[in-house]
Each structure stands twice: as structure tokens, then as C-alpha cells.
């Protein structure tokens, strides 16, 4: 399960840091270790994106506070929490703060590796989707005002004639705008166009 993704491991216990780093290295991951949450945050600007594995109970900033800090800095890297104290309220807190998984210490390699794989996949998926949405929005922004109006009509499910009437232009002109905006948006069909517009709008 080798991957180019980097795993950032944060734990105040040196033995845990070294052993888990060793395990992850054998599984083909690039691993970087930090002995505290603040050390990680300090290094953050220079870091390669990847997956974060953090302990919860640490002196200074704890794992939950780290998650809040990451959110505040709009860091989207997935966070996996590992803890020697898993109880229900803690798990709920961690998940609320945005952790993708919570694993109790000690854990089997399969559990940890599966969690990392899932986190990275999901993150990649999200990243891809975010990219698509960004591209669609960019293209939409490039449309002319008239093309925007025609697009709105199409999304409202109106036929060309009605759009023409509403915009006080000829049906023929609507057809031209429609063909142009389809090309600009890179949509092969009306259905695809609608799906794109929906995606762009839904993702806030």
C-alpha cells in the first residue's frame, strides 16, 4: 500500500513515535514525526500534504485543540486520532472536531494501515471533487451575461421558445447562446450541463 502521501505522526511518547514510524515505513509510507502539536503547527507551512496521526492526551496542546487549530487554518489533511483512553465522550469530541477515525492504543498494523488508506483515499476523492468544482465555477464565471441568463433558463427546465420570449430575443439567438455555453462549459449534453451546475452550486 505504498503511496506518495506523507504521514505526519504526532505523539509525546518517543517509543510510540519511533515504533509507529517504523511500522509505517515498512508499509511504504513516508513518515514525519513531531513530539508535540505545536511543533507540528510550527512546521505546517513547509509541509507536504498527507495524513495526520495524532495522540490526544499530550502536554501542552492536546489532540482536540490541534484539530480546532487545523480547522481554523483551513488545513484539510485528514486526521486520525490514536489514544490510550478511548471512552465514548472523547470519541464523540474527536469525531465532532473532524477526525476521520479514532483508534485505541495498542492497535494492530492492519487497523492503522486500513484507516490511513481510507483517509487518504477519501481525501484524494474530496480533493478531486474540489478540483472539478473549482474548474466548473471558473468556466461558469467566464460566461457572458446573456449566456448566464440562457443557462438559468435551461436549469429552470424552460424550452428555448419560452427563454427567448422571457429575454425578448429570438429563439434562434437562444439556440446560438446555448451552443456556445455548452462548448464553453465543456458539456456534451444538457444532462451533463445540469449536473455541473448543480455540483457548482451545491458545494457552497
Amino acid at each position: 500500500m505504498a503511496s506518495e502521501a506523507v504521514v505526519h505522526l504526532i505523539d509525546d511518547d518517543e517509543a510510540v513515535r519511533q515504533s509507529v514510524a517504523f511500522l509505517l515505513a515498512t508499509a511504504g509510507f513516508a513518515v514525519r514525526v513531531y513530539d508535540s502539536a505545536s511543533a507540528f503547527l510550527d512546521a505546517l507551512p513547509t509541509l507536504q500534504a498527507g495524513c495526520i496521526i495524532t495522540d490526544i492526551r499530550m502536554p501542552g496542546m492536546d489532540g482536540l485543540e490541534l484539530q480546532r487549530q487545523l480547522k481554523a487554518r483551513k488545513v484539510t489533511m485528514p486526521v486520525i486520532v490514536i489514544t490510550g483512553h478511548a471512552d465514548v465522550p472523547l470519541a464523540v469530541e474527536a469525531m465532532k472536531a473532524g477526525a476521520v477515525d479514532l483508534i485505541e492504543k495498542p492497535f494492530s498494523d492492519d487497523t492503522l494501515l486500513a484507516a490511513i488508506a481510507a483517509a487518504i483515499d477519501r481525501h484524494a476523492e474530496h480533493a478531486a471533487r474540489d478540483e472539478t468544482i473549482a474548474a466548473i465555477r471558473q468556466r461558469m464565471a467566464a460566461l457572458s451575461p446573456r449566456e448566464r441568463e440562457v443557462l438559468d433558463g435551461l436549469l429552470a427546465g424552460l424550452p428555448n421558445k419560452t427563454i427567448a420570449y422571457d429575454l425578448k430575443i429570438s429563439a434562434r439567438t437562444v439556440e446560438v447562446h446555448r451552443a456556445n455555453l455548452m462548448t464553453r462549459m465543456g458539456a456534451g449534453s444538457l444532462a451533463e450541463l445540469v449536473r455541473m451546475a448543480f455540483l457548482a452550486r451545491s458545494a457552497g
Binding site: A15, I82, K105
Partner: peptide, 8 residues
């Protein structure tokens, strides 16, 4: 903590 290290 040590158990995690041993297992890892």
C-alpha cells in the same frame, strides 16, 4: 504507550 510500541 509501551504496548503500542511493542505491537508496532
Amino acid at each position: 504507550q509501551p504496548l503500542t510500541a511493542v505491537a508496532s
